[in-house]
């Protein structure tokens, strides 16, 4: 299961378009007002609730409606990645995706990359 925290302006429309095309049954989309608003504890709790990978999907840098939310989210994703590894999961379980609402392919590609990371390590290992 891959949990995607999606910005309501960019991530959600892109994710919904990608979901409509099918093949993303292992994806859970959680809508957030801005990628920068995703709390670190929320992401960690997602792993406890069964997520094997987490994507934080926000706007393209410098295109964020909240000016720097997407940039904050990217820095947070780096710190989270380290925390998740320290907690015992393998590398690459948290990733930041910057996209615009008309880029469902970029969303799908990010999901596929996360699947590859999970597949290499195997589940919640």
């Amino acid at each position: 299961m891959i949990v995607c925290y999606c910005c309501s302006r960019s991530g959600v429309p892109a994710a919904l378009s990608a979901l409509e095309e099918g093949g993303l049954d292992d994806v859970i989309v959680r809508e957030v007002p801005c990628a920068g608003s995703v709390e670190r504890w929320e992401v960690l709790r997602s792993f406890r609730q069964g997520a094997e990978g987490v994507l934080i999907v926000g706007c393209l840098l410098e295109n964020c409606a909240h000016h720097y939310g997407s940039e904050v989210a990217a820095r947070r994703a780096v710190l989270l990645e380290r925390t998740v590894q320290d907690a015992g999961l393998s590398k690459g379980r948290v990733a930041m995706v910057h996209l615009a609402e008309h880029q469902p392919l970029r969303f799908r590609r990010a999901v596929e990359e996360m699947r590859a990371v999970i597949g290499t390590a195997g589940g919640q290992a």
């Binding site: 709390e39 504890w41 792993f47 907690a87 015992g88 999961l89 919640q124």
Partner: peptide, 18 residues
């Protein structure tokens, strides 16, 4: 509060994994 919750979740995750 946020950081305490984050640490709490990280410790709980580690406890579950290990």
């Amino acid at each position: 509060e946020r950081e305490a919750m984050e640490t709490c979740e990280a410790l709980a995750l580690h406890s579950e994994i290990k």
